[in-house]
């Protein structure tokens, strides 16, 4: 069973969050989207978007246990020499020569040669590949219509150098550049929800690099303060606080909860919190229903 969808309705950030939280191993492929001419109806039964079918493959990302380990994308030369050149570890001439002379070597073989020849260190290679992979993810975060497919339990080719990257930091960093207010409003509709930390927050926050603004927000999280109150305390606009909370949510670092004082959602009119119906229902009624449905 593959995870299929379209970035128009399930964003790169949401996908990375899913892969990260469920610690998936597999390959995510993104395709050029070709309009089919049909429309896709969203869950409200009213909004329609163009239906797109997958065309040419344009990017692959490999994951192991929820960590990004390899990424390549059309138009972003993934040859190790080019990656090192873009990271400033090789000059243009060196990179060109290496590409010509080591055309038959795979990345691992080439890396060994370069380290042995004292061109670069192992650390240079790891950091350069990391930078390359993260830059691909950031590009993906700006895409908004491409079809995708995630196939589980597919290992990356042996020839690739795998550099594990914790997605939490990538997600938080990536959401800092989200400027689309509408998307943020859809994701965090109600600012009167409170925030709480998930179980084992120490474990979740391990190795996470938060910026000053994120830390300020985190400092106010206690399960009672609403997002609106936190934004006010941090002197942030609604969009700013939404963007930060969205990043923390997608990275799995916080959870939204409904405080007692929360406003009711927009839908419906004159909503009154009702007494739970089942407080008036006898236990016996439920047991009779269970027996009936079992025997239906």
């Amino acid at each position: 069973m593959a995870l299929k969808g379209n970035l128009a309705v399930f964003t790169t950030t949401q996908l990375l969050n899913l892969i990260n939280l469920s610690k998936k191993t597999g390959v995510l492929t993104l395709y050029e989207g070709h309009k089919t001419g049909k429309k896709l109806t969203l869950g409200d039964g009213l909004t329609q978007i163009d239906e797109v079918a997958p065309g040419k493959e344009i990017a692959h990302l490999n994951f192991q246990q929820g960590m990004l380990v390899f990424a390549d994308m059309n138009g972003k030369d993934g040859h190790l020499a080019s990656v090192l050149q873009r990271a400033g570890k090789l000059n243009e001439e060196q990179a060109r020569t290496i590409r010509e002379k080591a055309a038959t070597l795979n990345d691992k073989g080439l890396a060994l040669r370069l380290i042995n020849a004292n061109y670069v260190t192992k650390n240079d290679i790891v950091r350069s590949i990391q930078k390359h992979a993260v830059s691909i993810v950031f590009d993906l975060m700006t895409w908004n219509k491409e079809p995708f497919e995630f196939k589980e339990n597919i290992a990356p080719p042996d020839s690739h150098i795998l550099v594990p990257i914790d997605l939490k930091n990538v997600i938080i960093e990536g959401t800092r550049v989200i400027t689309e207010q509408k998307h943020l409003e859809e994701e965090i509709e109600n600012l009167d929800f409170a925030l709480k930390f998930p179980e084992n927050p120490g474990e979740k926050f391990k190795n996470v690099q938060l910026g000053t603004n994120e830390w300020r927000v985190v400092g106010f999280i206690n399960g009672k303060n609403t997002i609106r109150q936190i934004g006010k305390a941090c002197n942030m606009t609604d969009t700013e606080i939404r963007r930060i909370v969205y990043g923390l949510l997608q990275a799995g670092l916080v959870q939204m909860i409904r405080p007692q004082s929360a406003e009711q959602p927009k839908r419906g009119t004159d909503l009154k919190r009702q007494q739970p119906a089942n407080t008036r229902i006898e236990r016996d009624v439920i047991q009779r229903l269970i027996v009936k449905i079992k025997n239906t």
């Binding site: 869950g43 409904r258 919190r273 119906a277």
Partner: peptide, 23 residues
């Protein structure tokens, strides 16, 4: 099979939870 409806599902879930705190 329709990720395009997940956001709406989440919104409906929240709305009904607000109507009554029933299971």
């Amino acid at each position: 099979s329709k990720p395009e409806t997940f956001r709406e599902a989440r919104s409906i879930l929240e709305t009904f939870r607000a109507y009554a705190p029933t299971p």
